[in-house]
Design a protein around this nucleic acid. Structure first.
Length: 582
DNA sequence: GCCGTTTTCGGCCCGACTGTTTTCAGTCG
């Protein structure tokens, strides 16, 4: 069973215990453990096999959850969950997903009216049965009906959107908010600012001059993309946009902007740990500042730097704020110096008209120069990928000759830009490469990837990739897990073993920057980096229009704690060429 | 159920908004 599946079991246990009215701190423990397990870079199964007791090194996992993990690994299910599901129907869990319906309401509806799923809840709300219950009225019924409608339309779209999708809308909102004269500062916060791969809703933070909150709220509601105002108070407003995404606005006094930005950037786990640390130091942290408990004086609020500093911490990059190791590192002054956009010197995965790309070699070179790159590796598909017009040996050699010509012309024109000869060669089902080795060894860079046989079992797939890695000609292993976010699960793979092989054969793992791929994902990047494996941040562009996607890969690398030295394509052309030759 | 620079018990982040009530519980982030 995967970490995500085991995390889901604990999360479900937490929901059911909460409906039952169990100790809220026990509920929180299961929820924390679920979060922590889902963010883990190694599999629970791997830890269990290596040394069972190490399970308790996972934050939020103690004796009780340790035992339950072992039970799930051994039996394939949890007896506690089975028991809870005998007491309460599964449909109650779905009811929790309706906005405005929480555990107490679910318990009330189930206990008093025997409502056990969303359909029954809808009927009861329509017939006006719910208003007979304590603390329920007509408005509550309306709210639930609306909530059910939204839940159903979102369910079709999986609820979370790609970072890029949310980013484009959020940028529009930010620009719109800047037009209001009362708005002194505005930016997006939340998972968007942390560059999480998918986004649940958009958080916008606005700083205004004293007592000007309502003007900015009015302006926000007038955003042309607004479909419906869900709630609106003095400092907090939520709207639903026409595409279905929800956007939250928070308005604070500009003198408290840093405190609010820190708070609304999160993550929740980061905030919880931060507040706990503050508490131990006699301070209280909220969205308005850091307060010294003893004197009652606010000691920081204006900037994030001030906030962290007041707690004895370095400023932490948003991408690191996941409540994993960053606060400990900040305390010791041991935060990484994250890679930035300007560290990138080239792109090592690019398709041209020689396979399924839409631009010519010279157009790609021109675009590379315009973006200030030193090099782009042309890596078209090999023949196994028929649908992408993959190349045979002959065509590849022909392409190499044209690359030489383009490079000569660039040199004559005084350009310091080079196209590298490369390929994205297929790793066939048996682990051999889809191209003659003698031809491959003539190239500057060989990118290898799996494009078929995704349903292979875990051991076979792992062997297949390891065999390709030991071929002696591969430099980069592309989109290592094959996932498409929200579309296709990664293929079964022992990522630990693949990272070890990459290290043994000095192969770089790709961070594919396409917003639907982001493969490797953040936690695997962290693991690779820890083991000393370099990553290559590539766009896998099929048109020059997607070259800006590099930015998504960079932020993903930052989420994996990558510094400049961890990334292959931060090397200058000269360095890279001698590195690849070795 | 977890956790420990006030350790093995007694805590556990903090505040806004809503709807239903007359002071607050429930939900959300």
């Amino acid at each position: 069973m995967t970490n995500t599946e085991i995390a889901a079991i604990f999360s479900t246990i937490a929901d059911l215990l909460e409906i039952k009215g169990d100790n809220p701190f026990r509920v929180r423990s299961y929820r924390n453990a679920a979060l922590s397990i889902d963010q883990l870079a190694v599999t629970l199964n791997y830890i269990y096999k290596r040394d069972e007791d190490e399970l308790e090194d996972i934050p939020g996992v103690g004796k009780g959850i340790h035992e339950k993990i072992v039970e799930i690994i051994k039996l394939g299910h949890s007896t506690l969950l089975d028991e809870l599901l005998r007491e309460m129907p599964k449909g109650l869990l779905e009811m929790l997903k309706i906005p405005g319906v929480g555990p107490k309401k679910v318990k009330l509806f189930y206990g008093e009216l025997n409502i056990s799923d969303v359909d029954a809840l809808e009927k009861a709300a329509q017939s006006g049965e719910l208003r007979a219950l304590p603390k329920m009225g007509e408005k509550s019924e309306d709210k639930i009906l609306k909530g059910i409608k939204n839940y159903r339309s979102l369910k079709e779209k999986s609820g979370r959107v790609y970072h890029r999708t949310a980013f484009l809308v959020a940028t529009e909102i930010v620009e719109f908010m800047k037009k209001a004269p009362v708005v002194k500062r505005v930016e997006f916060a939340g998972s968007l600012r942390r560059w999480q791969e998918t986004i649940g809703d958009i958080d916008i933070l606005v700083g205004v001059k004293k007592n000007k909150a309502d003007e900015s709220t009015k302006h926000f509601i007038d955003f042309p993309g607004t479909e419906e105002v869900i709630l609106s108070g003095l400092t907090k407003t939520t709207i639903r946009l026409k595409g279905g995404i929800q956007a939250d606005l928070r308005v604070v006094d500009e003198s408290q902007y840093g405190a609010a930005l820190l708070y609304f950037t999160g993550s929740k786990a980061h905030n919880v740990i931060l507040r706990d640390m503050a508490k131990k130091a006699g301070m209280r942290v909220n969205e308005y500042g850091v307060t010294d408990e003893e004197t009652g004086r606010v000691v920081a609020s204006e900037t994030e730097e001030d906030m962290y500093k007041a707690l004895g911490l370095e400023w932490i990059e948003p991408e690191l704020r996941e409540g994993l190791h960053e606060l400990e590192a900040a305390k010791k002054g041991g935060l990484p110096k994250l890679i930035t956009e300007k560290d990138i010197k080239g792109d090592l995965h690019f398709h041209s008209t020689y396979s399924d790309g839409s631009d010519s070699l010279s157009a790609i070179a021109k675009a590379g120069i315009e973006r200030g790159l030193e090099y782009i590796a042309i890596t078209d598909h090999s023949k196994a990928v028929g649908i992408a017009r993959g190349m045979n040996e002959q065509k590849l050699l022909k392409q190499c000759a044209e690359i030489d010509k383009v490079n000569l012309r660039l040199k004559d024109n005084g350009e310091s830009f080079t196209l590298l000869k490369g390929i994205e060669v297929d790793i066939l089902a048996d682990g051999t490469l889809d191209m003659d080795k003698d031809v491959l060894s003539q190239l500057d860079v060989v990118v290898a990837a799996v494009h078929s046989g995704f349903a292979m079992d875990k051991d076979k797939m792992t062997d297949r990739i390891q065999k390709a890695m030991s071929s002696g000609v591969v430099n980069i292993h592309a989109h290592p897990t094959g996932r498409l976010i929200n579309i296709r699960e990664p293929y079964e793979l022992d990522i630990d073993a693949v990272i070890t092989s990459a290290k043994d054969h000095n192969i770089s793992l790709e961070i594919n920057s396409h917003p639907e791929r982001l493969d490797l994902k953040d936690s695997h990047i962290f693991l690779a980096r820890e083991r000393g494996v370099k990553v290559a941040i590539s766009t896998d562009s099929h048109t020059i229009d997607t070259m800006p996607y590099m930015s998504f890969g960079i932020h993903n690398a930052r989420r994996g704690w990558c510094e400049k030295r961890d990334v292959l394509n931060t090397m200058s052309l000269k360095k890279l060429q001698s590195y690849l030759k070795q």
